[in-house]
Design a binder for these strands. Sequence first.
DNA 1: AAAAAATGTTGACATAGGACAATCTTTATA
DNA 2: TATAAAGATTGTCCTATGTCAACATTTTTT
Lengths: 189, 189
Amino acid sequence: MYDSLIRYIQSRAAIEKEQLDLICSRFSALKTKRNEILVRYDDICQHYYFVNKGCIRLFTINKEGIETSRFFAFEGSFGTALPSFIDQKPTFEYLQTIEKSDLLVISRTDFYQLVDTIPAFEMIYREILELGFITAQKRIYGFQGFNALEKVQWIIANQPQFLLRVSNKMAASYLGITPSTLSRIKSKL
Amino acid sequence: MYDSLIRYIQSRAAIEKEQLDLICSRFSALKTKRNEILVRYDDICQHYYFVNKGCIRLFTINKEGIETSRFFAFEGSFGTALPSFIDQKPTFEYLQTIEKSDLLVISRTDFYQLVDTIPAFEMIYREILELGFITAQKRIYGFQGFNALEKVQWIIANQPQFLLRVSNKMAASYLGITPSTLSRIKSKL
DNA sequence: AAAAAATGTTGACATAGGACAATCTTTATA
DNA sequence: TATAAAGATTGTCCTATGTCAACATTTTTT
């Protein structure tokens, strides 16, 4: 059950077995259905999730009812409504599993307790933040000035599995284009 | 000289005078001219900058010679070419002071040494990353689906001083619109 | 398995904002 | 201070992509 998480940690930091066990002991298993909502608009996010199997999606719904996908975490990666998790303010977004999924969950309290007591875990969190920051930067500046075709080519180059795993509608809303436009572009590739 | 930096740190973490002095001792003063380049395209970023006075800008120039502004740091904040600073890969971007500025500079080596030895400093860096992450998210998702007018309104609401401090050209390239469009919008506000 | 709902595709049309160019204004340089 | 260079503004025109609608396909529910 913890195999993937252990691999994740060991590939990023040298750590003793005892501490690794301590970390794992703070995560519990959670099985979810397709389209199950984990965090709602007004919730304050209290958990960090690790995806063993499936996929979680972070998204918003605006006043016109249009969904915008913000972030996807696939197998072997962490995800949550991070701004709310950090600041403990309402998320103003939704977190869901878009497929039947196996997750590992840790509470915020336990998470920060591990961050504060296990240097290797602190380092891993710092790396998640650094990487998240860099990814966000690339997303902003990669997309700045890109037209629809270039955005699609970018996502194919950077996350080859993305268009295969995610519905057109979700993919389009992630790329900031309409499903019609994405459909037209795909037919010409 | 260190007043602003000390205020920055003390407002974010409880810290003893001794450690505060140690931190300050690792920063040295740097006076720069308007449009002085601090980091070039092929450089690997080796310094973190704190702005006492003036403003630093991070930007790129694409193959057609068009500049895109990525980030601005004004008085009392930190800035650098963070992805390169973190990963020690070429920046592929430029860092400059857009006005005559007074900066404090710390080397990467000293910076990470402070992160690893002074918990309060580690916490501040983590906060910078968390905040940077949140800001980047807001920038992405705030702008996703915004038209030009909404982008301008957003920047006025979120960084009121921005349009006053920064040239039209730089502001437009930050917002991902042309100077013409920005000009037209401002005339209708 | 049938019916209903959601999603995907494709066409016709409309429009926001980019490209380019002509001034005007501010800033830099000699 | 004069001249040159860079930036800002505004007009005209054009294109990428959005909107809306019709139909096709896939998924969900009964």
